[in-house]
Amino acid sequence: MPERTDLRTALEELAATPVLLIALDFDGVLSPLVERAEDARPLPRSAAALKALAALPSTTTALISGRALGSLREVASPEPETLLIGSHGAETWTGPDAAPLTLDARQAELLDAAADVIESVVAAHSGTWLESKPAGVVLHTRSAADDVAADAVAAARDGLAGLDGLKVTDGKRVLEVSVVHADKGQGLGLLRELSGATAVLFAGDDVTDEHAFGVLQPQDVGIKIGEGSTAARYRLGSPEDLAGALEDLYALRRQCASSGHS
């Protein structure tokens, strides 16, 4: 995609699209990163802007997160109409009739074996902890010293190497292990299809968000939050900066709706 640097111009064009999808990661995007995952909450300005956007005509909001759906609902308190993708695409909530994630016997056995590996790593590395998800398990190292974290990840990878069928992904001080091979790019594709979006805004901060940035189309807007290499065309320094961009998009989209341009 061609490089463009003027985010304001891009938002003006995006606001005029007939059917808009706004899909956002949660941690590090709507919420600042925090030490304890359960303490994360969306910034009030961002939450208000997303709620206002969801109320506009032909506008769909969604969250795409590495969190399990239950955890995402607990910390994000999404609006009832907001669509949800959890566990990096392995879990989806697209309405009351959406089928829950189910694992077959082989996947369930593999998940138990992966959990055993991570539990043994956590027991041997201070400051690390395990998070269980419906389709996976996560090694968290944010509270560990850097050398301990590196050793823990290496030990986990060694222990998991003998288990065929796992998807293992590095994130920001996490190692994600899943028995379902899905990613945020696939999740975004599903949301685009369901919403009938003619253009998409996606914002993310982690390496796992690159799958979603990679499937964006020329009319879409991808925003990377924070540092790191990215396929996104735009970058903002912090979740606080994104709040301002969401407020701008709401004002522009409302103006287009009132003038009949969207």
Rank of each mutant, 00 (worst) to 15 (best):
3 E>F: 14
4 R>G: 13
5 T>V: 12
7 L>K: 05
8 R>N: 13
11 L>P: 01
12 E>M: 09
12 E>S: 10
13 E>Y: 09
17 T>H: 13
19 V>R: 15
20 L>H: 03
21 L>K: 08
23 A>T: 06
25 D>Y: 01
26 F>N: 00
27 D>F: 05
32 P>V: 15
33 L>M: 14
33 L>E: 08
37 A>W: 00
38 E>Q: 13
44 P>G: 04
47 A>M: 05
50 L>S: 08
52 A>N: 05
52 A>Y: 02
54 A>N: 02
55 A>T: 00
57 P>V: 12
57 P>F: 07
57 P>T: 07
62 A>G: 03
69 L>S: 12
69 L>H: 11
69 L>M: 11
74 E>I: 10
76 A>Q: 03
78 P>G: 04
79 E>I: 07
80 P>T: 05
82 T>D: 01
86 G>S: 12
87 S>P: 07
89 G>P: 01
93 W>F: 13
93 W>Q: 03
93 W>P: 01
95 G>L: 06
96 P>V: 03
100 P>I: 06
103 L>K: 01
105 A>G: 08
109 E>Y: 04
111 L>Y: 05
113 A>D: 15
114 A>I: 03
115 A>I: 11
115 A>D: 08
116 D>L: 11
116 D>N: 03
117 V>R: 14
117 V>P: 04
120 S>G: 06
120 S>H: 14
121 V>C: 11
123 A>D: 14
128 T>H: 00
130 L>H: 08
130 L>C: 02
130 L>N: 03
131 E>P: 12
133 K>S: 08
133 K>I: 04
134 P>V: 02
135 A>R: 08
135 A>C: 11
136 G>T: 02
137 V>R: 10
137 V>A: 08
137 V>L: 14
138 V>C: 15
138 V>L: 11
139 L>E: 08
139 L>A: 12
141 T>N: 10
144 A>T: 14
154 A>D: 14
155 A>W: 00
159 G>R: 13
159 G>C: 07
164 D>S: 12
164 D>H: 07
166 L>T: 06
166 L>A: 06
172 K>N: 09
172 K>P: 02
173 R>I: 02
173 R>F: 00
174 V>G: 10
176 E>I: 02
177 V>Y: 04
178 S>I: 01
181 H>C: 04
184 K>Y: 04
184 K>H: 09
186 Q>L: 13
186 Q>R: 07
187 G>E: 04
189 G>S: 09
189 G>F: 02
190 L>S: 00
194 L>A: 14
195 S>W: 05
195 S>V: 07
200 V>P: 11
201 L>P: 10
204 G>T: 05
204 G>P: 06
205 D>Q: 03
206 D>C: 03
206 D>K: 04
206 D>L: 04
207 V>R: 05
209 D>K: 01
213 F>S: 00
217 Q>T: 10
219 Q>F: 05
219 Q>I: 06
220 D>E: 07
221 V>C: 08
221 V>Y: 07
225 I>C: 11
228 G>L: 06
233 R>C: 06
234 Y>P: 01
236 L>P: 04
237 G>F: 01
239 P>S: 11
241 D>I: 06
242 L>I: 10
243 A>W: 02
244 G>Q: 12
247 E>G: 03
249 L>Q: 05
255 Q>E: 14
257 A>L: 09
257 A>S: 14
